Lab assay of single mutants.
Amino acid sequence: SDYEVNVNGIHHRFHNISEELIKFIEEALRRGEDLREIIKKVRELLG
């Protein structure tokens, strides 16, 4: 049904976003950045 496609589409989009965010955060932590600064950047990215 349309509803299922829609829900799956939304889930898929969020899954991709969270994968990208996790990579972004892991790389920043590897560079020794402060978690609070990383979260601030993530918030800015998400608008």
Rank of each mutant, 00 (worst) to 15 (best):
G9A: 02
I25D: 00
N8Y: 01
H15W: 04
G9E: 03
I17T: 03
L46G: 09
L46Y: 07
I25T: 01
I22Y: 04
E19L: 14
N6W: 06
E33K: 08
E20S: 12
I17M: 06
I39P: 00
R30D: 12
L29G: 03
L29R: 05
I39W: 02
K40L: 14
G9D: 06
H11R: 14
I25S: 00
N6M: 11
E27S: 14
I38A: 03
H11P: 07
V5A: 03
E4H: 08
R13V: 15
Y3G: 01
G47T: 11
G32Y: 06
F14K: 00
E33V: 13
I25C: 02
N8H: 07
R36M: 14
H12A: 05
H11N: 13
I25Y: 01
E27T: 11
I17V: 15
R43A: 15
S18M: 03
E37G: 09
V5D: 02
E37T: 10
F24A: 06
E33S: 10
I39E: 04
R31F: 10
D34R: 07
N16H: 05
L45T: 08
L46A: 10
V42P: 00
E20T: 10
N8V: 03
R31V: 11
E20N: 11
I39T: 04
E37D: 13
G32M: 06
I38Y: 02
I22S: 02
K23T: 10
A28L: 12
R31S: 10
R30W: 12
I22M: 06
A28K: 08
E33G: 07
F14W: 15
H11L: 15
I10R: 05
L35S: 03
E27R: 09
L45E: 09
Y3P: 01
K40E: 14
R31T: 12
R36H: 12
I38Q: 01
E33H: 10
D2H: 06
N6F: 06
N6A: 07
V42G: 01
E4M: 04
E27C: 05
I25K: 00
R36C: 05
K40R: 13
L46F: 06
E4T: 06
E27L: 12
R36F: 12
E27D: 14
I39R: 03
A28G: 08
H11D: 07
R36W: 13
S18I: 03
I39N: 01
Y3V: 02
L45C: 04
R36Q: 15
K40C: 07
I17R: 00
G32W: 05
L29H: 04
F24T: 07
E19P: 13
E20K: 10
F24G: 05
K23P: 04
K40N: 11
N8S: 05
L35E: 03
N8T: 02
A28M: 14
S1V: 15
Y3M: 04
E44Q: 10
N16Q: 06
E37Q: 11
L35F: 06
H12G: 02
I39G: 02
I25H: 00
R31L: 14
S1Y: 13
E19Y: 13
E20V: 07
K41F: 11
I38K: 01
E33M: 11
I25M: 03
I17Y: 01
I22L: 03
L46E: 11
K40S: 12
E33A: 08
I22V: 08
L46I: 14
R36K: 11
K23R: 13
E37M: 09
I38W: 02
E44D: 10
R36E: 08
R43I: 11
E4L: 06
N16R: 04
G32A: 09
S18D: 07
N16K: 04
V42M: 05
G47D: 13
G47V: 11
V7L: 07
E33T: 09
G32S: 11
I38N: 00
V7A: 09
H15E: 15
R31K: 11
V7P: 02
E26T: 09
F24W: 12
E19Q: 14
D34M: 09
E37C: 06
D34V: 07
R30M: 13
F24N: 05
F14R: 00
K41Y: 09
R13H: 15
V42I: 09
R31W: 09
I38G: 00
E19M: 09
I10V: 13
S18H: 05
S1Q: 14
K23H: 14
H12T: 03
L21N: 06
N6E: 13
Y3N: 01
S1H: 14
I39C: 02
N8F: 01
R31H: 13
G47W: 10
K41I: 12
H15N: 12
N16S: 07
Y3C: 03
R30P: 02
R30S: 12
S1D: 05
E44H: 08
V5N: 01
V7N: 05
L35K: 02
K41T: 12
K23Y: 13
L21I: 11
I25G: 00
L35V: 14
G9R: 01
L35T: 06
I39S: 02
R13Y: 15
L35D: 02
H12Q: 03
R13K: 15
N8R: 03
E37L: 14
R31I: 11
E27A: 12
E4Q: 05
L45M: 13
F24R: 05
D34A: 12
N16E: 04
R36N: 14
I22A: 04
L45I: 13
N6S: 11
L45W: 08
G32T: 07
E37P: 05
G47N: 09
E4I: 09
H15D: 14
G32E: 11
E26P: 00
E19A: 10
S18F: 04
R36A: 13
H12I: 15
E44P: 06
D2Y: 10
K41C: 08
L21R: 02
S1E: 10
E4C: 07
I17A: 08
V5H: 01
E37F: 10
H15R: 06
G9M: 02
E33R: 08
R30C: 03
K41M: 14
D2P: 03
I25A: 02
H11K: 15
V5Y: 02
V5P: 01
N16C: 05
V7H: 08
H15A: 06
G32D: 10
H15F: 07
L45A: 12
F24E: 08
I22G: 03
E19R: 11
V42R: 00
V7Q: 15
E27P: 01
L35C: 03
E37Y: 07
E44T: 07
L21V: 12
R30Y: 14
S18Q: 05
K23F: 15
K41W: 12
F24C: 06
L21E: 06
V42E: 00
E26N: 10
L46S: 11
N8G: 11
I10P: 01
Y3S: 01
Y3R: 01
